[in-house]
């Protein structure tokens, strides 16, 4: 049996490696199962993977779940400012009633999780450091994700929407003064060449995005016992790797920015609280208004220590 896995990253990216580990483990198990990886968005565009996955036209994907927030609004909680404090907290969230509730939503679309995982990100400014909400006032800012746009707009930033691939040029020509995205995107789009200051994910970080390895549920159930076991075993191994690598990514991005002569700023716990308070009034509030049962989901997430 052959399973098709699609993702948007290069083969050096940690998320490709996660997929590769599962593929290798399954191959090694010798259970007549082969995972064919279509990386670098060679099959589907990043945001267009969820629908084929849910209809069984694609078997597996490594996918930032909030991309499908328009299809299942509950997923917006997987890219919510300040909801996740650090990587260990993220791991606890992945193993909580909150995640069970999300997985129930996924099951509605015939989707299941094989590998849980969060990646963190930070802020970068072309003229100054961004640590507290006051810092973004009046800046043309590009935010990654709807909830972040709502929060940053609440802080008085002007929101400019563009693809992450356009950040570099927009900063270079001065169209954009601040951006918020994942640590790995900051590095892969060489944003360090254009900014003065970088606020990475540190002891506290605002930006965490849930990017699991998903599988079509029916495809999984169509496999025999041995194949399912091989997949789950591979997934377990990959999940441990994912968590370790996720922690290393942030440090690696700091090193790249430092070497490029960019100032590194740190978000203090007070800054974090200020952002979180702002998020409560903006993005959390909006989320609860828009999503049926949203309050319950949010409470479940906030209950995770």
């Amino acid at each position: 049996t052959e399973l098709r896995l699609s993702h948007q990253w290069s083969n050096k990216d940690v998320r490709h490696q996660v997929a590769q580990i599962v593929a290798d483990e399954v191959a090694a198990a010798d259970v007549d199962l082969n995972i064919k990886i279509f990386g670098s968005k060679s099959l589907f565009k990043p945001r267009e993977q969820y629908k084929p996955l849910s209809r069984g036209q694609l078997d597996m994907t490594v996918f930032p779940l909030s991309y499908a927030g328009g299809q299942q609004p509950a997923y917006n909680l997987t890219l919510m400012p300040g909801l996740v404090k650090n990587h260990d907290h993220a791991a606890r969230l992945s193993d909580s009633p909150f995640m069970d509730a999300l997985e129930a939503k996924m099951a509605e679309d015939d989707v299941m999780v094989l590998v849980h995982g969060y990646l963190a990100g930070g802020f970068a400014g072309t003229d100054k450091c961004i640590t507290s909400p006051d810092d973004v006032k009046g800046l043309q800012t590009r935010a990654a994700g709807k909830s972040f746009e709502q929060m940053l707009a609440g802080a008085g930033a002007s929101i400019a929407s563009m693809a992450s691939s356009e950040i570099y040029n927009a900063m270079q020509t001065g169209v954009l003064q601040a951006a918020n995205t994942s640590s790995s995107s900051f590095v892969s789009y060489r944003i360090y060449e254009q900014v003065k200051c970088y606020t990475p994910a540190g002891d506290v970080a605002l930006w965490f995005m849930y990017q699991p390895l998903l599988m079509n549920k029916s495809s999984f159930e169509g496999l025999n016992e041995a194949q399912q076991q091989a997949l789950l075993a591979g997934a377990e191994k990959a999940e441990a790797f994912y968590l370790e690598e996720a922690k290393k990514q942030d440090a690696a991005s700091v090193q790249v920015f430092e070497e490029a002569g960019v100032d590194i700023a740190e978000m203090s716990p007070e800054d974090f609280e200020a952002w979180r308070k702002l998020a409560m009034e903006t993005s959390y509030k909006k989320f609860v208004e828009e999503v049926p049962g949203g309050q319950d989901l949010l409470d479940k997430a906030l209950a995770v220590e």
Binding site: M162, E166, N169, A170, T173, G174, V175
Partner: peptide, 9 residues
């Protein structure tokens, strides 16, 4: 407009 910081290409 293109190279002076007003707009993207």
């Amino acid at each position: 407009a293109m190279y002076g910081g007003i707009a993207t290409p």
